[in-house]
Design a protein around this nucleic acid. Structure first.
Lengths: 323, 323
DNA sequence: CGGAGTTTTGAGACTGGTCAAAGCATGTGG
DNA sequence: CCACATGCTTTGACCAGTCTCAAAACTCCG
């Protein structure tokens, strides 16, 4: 680890203290476990080693700082717009975001939800233009990494190059998962997978995985999942009745994780129907468990172990509340 | 252009001549315009400048050859498997391919169809593992680019780095388009968009855009589009009846391109219903025409002009048949 | 307390899926 | 060269899941 690695609690503190608008200062306040979030914010960042400049140990040469400044956003504020020149990439320090595309005939599709530790705008560096709109779902803060810095640094540092390639490829993997979800899953499965996916990512971000806030509206969830908001609402209600989830407005709690997970491959009594002809539901010719679930792959093992440990250990839901 | 740029007609000729199995030697025979295909194969390749090594003019240093060898595949042969170590990336010289992912519970999703000029396996370089299975839909041939070569060369050549980033980002853009298709479009729109997309790409690949072979089965089209094969078949039949397409088995002809295109935003008399609430169908707040249609962006202008010229000029369908 | 936006819930319509059977195309073997 | 087998495609009838429209309930905020 280099001395200056970007993780500096004091640099983070102002975000907690400031906030002229008390009502909207929810970027961290609403995260059930602010201390944990604070602790891990820079630790999750892919560029933490080089963000503020460091004497890079792999190339034996000095690298200039990646991050030029930080930017804070209010809820509903747009970070960047599709089609605009991509002059920077962003690493999320705080807050939740969505990215959307807009078709020629005005149809909007949410392509993803992002949280602290995620990168925004990386998909624009290839063409030099942003492909999405990025909008804050809550108050948030991002580290601004100018593309010029990034491209230069990619050339200088093999580690950084690997990071960027990795992030891009992971993104593609996540998109593949989304395509599978949209193309092959019924509504209930999609919602279940969505909640599980959120839970997984929140866990990596070190907040409680079973009890969190949905930063997006039903309409946004539905848009992302290819469903209408009413359908999402109905499924939430149904899973609530079944005791699998506890949904109260924008707050959700996973009460039976296994049941939730089992919804995905086994849509109730439809199972016996599933031996259909055609492409779907092959009896898994080779035991390929690696793909299509999310974007984990190399860290998957470690994360999975962490998750299992935490989930098993957590008989109560008050896991992170100690801090 | 460097002297050795990989485009060498004599190197390509063997593929045309060989073929112990007369019946399956259809990689090029079935393309309506073999001469055009041959002409453009290497010209479309993103690595044509450096594939065989060249004194790169942007870095003023000698670059080692990218492509180590070529590999020929029979129909239904697997180029690489998901989860396997990604030791190479492939540039398609001939033939058509599909990439698929397999979920943990055995559901398969086709993530894309590839044709000459496209890259395969690039999404694996980040994690070092392939994320998809890649399978040949026809006899084909690929240039094998070992990852080691590629990663080394990315570091040496800024142009190549840009190419790779560009290809990855374009891939992401295409995936976004697919998500929009799967999440927001009805069956007829999906099929129409699929045919148009194929046509566009075949045109870039310099084969007739209006009259081509569908290399994939109905089941594969349906899987890709999130529909069942019967639905695809029904829609083909319907568009055939309407005189928009002429579909005979695996051969398709676009008879009314404008009508086909107009199907996408305006699903018949549903238009007036479309003033729905929620996220969909905003009246296009900003005229953003850049996204979500396909992967073109920088070359879009040129390609578009070409396309329009060719499409307008082509009163008959026998465009490329001169060669 | 009132208003705007979000969520829930219901009733009915319709798209697309499911199952089934017949029609075709392609390749194989006699 | 033809008959047959296999796999793909087409078409029909029926049904289920999801969408649409509508209205009431709720939440958040001024």
């Amino acid at each position: 680890m280099s001395v200056v690695n970007g993780f500096n609690p004091s640099a983070y503190a102002p975000l907690l203290r400031t906030g002229r608008r008390v009502s909207n200062e929810n970027a961290l306040r609403d995260v059930p476990c602010p201390a944990a979030a604070q602790r891990s914010t820079c630790g999750l960042c892919k560029f933490r080693e080089t963000c503020l400049g460091s004497s890079s140990h792999d190339d034996n040469q000095f690298t200039k700082p990646l991050v030029s400044y930080r930017r804070r956003l209010k809820k509903d504020e747009t970070l960047y717009r599709s089609g605009a020149k991509c002059d920077a990439v962003y690493s999320i320090r705080a807050g939740f975001f969505k990215t959307t595309i807009l078709s020629e005939d005005g149809i909007q599709q949410i392509t993803g939800f992002q949280m602290p530790g995620d990168l925004l705008g990386l998909d624009g560096i290839g063409a030099g233009k942003n492909r999405c709109d990025a909008v804050a779902l809550s108050q948030g803060e991002v580290c601004v990494i100018p593309c010029a810095n990034l491209v230069r640094s990619i050339h200088d540092s093999e580690a950084l190059q690997a990071h960027v390639l990795r992030a891009l490829c992971d993104d593609i993997g996540v998109n593949y998962g989304a395509m599978l979800l949209l193309g092959n899953r019924r509504a209930e499965e999609r919602v279940a997978a969505f909640v599980i996916g959120l839970s997984d990512r929140l866990l990596a971000f070190c907040t409680p995985w079973s009890d969190f806030r949905l930063w997006m509206t039903r309409a946004e969830i539905g848009n992302f999942l290819g469903l209408k908001l009413e359908t999402v609402s109905r499924i939430f209600s149904k899973l609530d009745e079944q005791g699998i989830l506890a949904v109260r407005g924008s707050h959700i709690r996973i009460r039976d994780f296994d049941a939730l997970r089992s919804l995905i491959g086994n849509p109730e009594e439809k199972v016996r129907r599933r031996r259909s002809r055609g492409l779907a539901a092959l009896p898994s010719p080779l035991p390929n468990l690696a793909v299509a679930s999310a974007g984990h792959e190399a860290d998957a093992a470690r994360q999975l172990v962490d998750r299992i440990i935490e989930r098993v250990a957590a008989t109560s839901d008050e896991v992170c509340a100690i801090s």
